[in-house]
Simulated assay, not measured.
Amino acid sequence: MSEGPIKQWRDGHKTDRVSTPDAHRVCAPSPVKGRGYCGRKNDRTAPFKDATCSDCHAAARADKEAG
């Protein structure tokens, strides 16, 4: 597919993919045992204020907006 003006326009509206690498990720706790708030299987959890997982923080923001 060519890099034409339509594809360039679409790419201009994409948001950057942001995720914390597994080596640096500390998830927020989830009601489901053994899972982080983001849904990933995780052994390392911390209170929300200390969690470093960007996916957990994004999930919490989405839940707050939905609720």
Score class of each variant (00 low, 15 high):
Arg40Met: 15
Asp11Gln: 04
Pro21Asn: 09
Glu3Cys: 08
Tyr37Thr: 15
Cys53Asn: 02
Cys38Val: 07
Ala62Gln: 14
Tyr37Pro: 04
Ala51Val: 02
Arg44Thr: 06
Thr45Asp: 10
Ser54Arg: 02
His57Lys: 07
Asn42Arg: 07
Lys33Asp: 14
Lys49Cys: 03
Pro5Asn: 03
Thr45Trp: 01
Ala60Gly: 10
Val26Asp: 06
His57Asn: 03
Thr20Glu: 11
Arg10His: 07
Lys49Leu: 01
Trp9Gln: 09
Asp55Cys: 07
Arg61Asp: 07
Lys41Arg: 15
Asp50Tyr: 05
Asp43Ala: 13
Lys41Tyr: 08
Thr20Ile: 04
Arg10Ala: 03
Ala59Gln: 11
Asp16Gln: 14
Lys14Leu: 15
Arg44Glu: 13
Ala23Asn: 12
Lys7Ser: 01
Arg10Pro: 01
Thr15Cys: 01
Gly12Arg: 02
Asn42His: 09
Lys49Ala: 05
Asp22Ala: 14
Trp9Val: 06
Gly12Phe: 12
Ala59Leu: 13
Gly39Asp: 09
Lys49Val: 02
Gly36Ile: 11
Asp11His: 06
Asp50Trp: 07
Thr52Ile: 08
His57Trp: 10
Arg61Val: 13
Cys56Ala: 03
Pro29Thr: 11
Thr15His: 12
Lys41Ile: 15
Ala28Phe: 05
Thr20Asn: 02
Val26Met: 08
Cys27Ser: 07
Ala60Asp: 09
His57Glu: 13
Ser30Tyr: 11
Arg25Gly: 03
Pro5Cys: 09
Arg25Val: 03
Ala51Ile: 10
Thr20His: 01
His57Ala: 13
His57Val: 13
Asp55His: 04
Ala46Asn: 01
Arg40Ile: 14
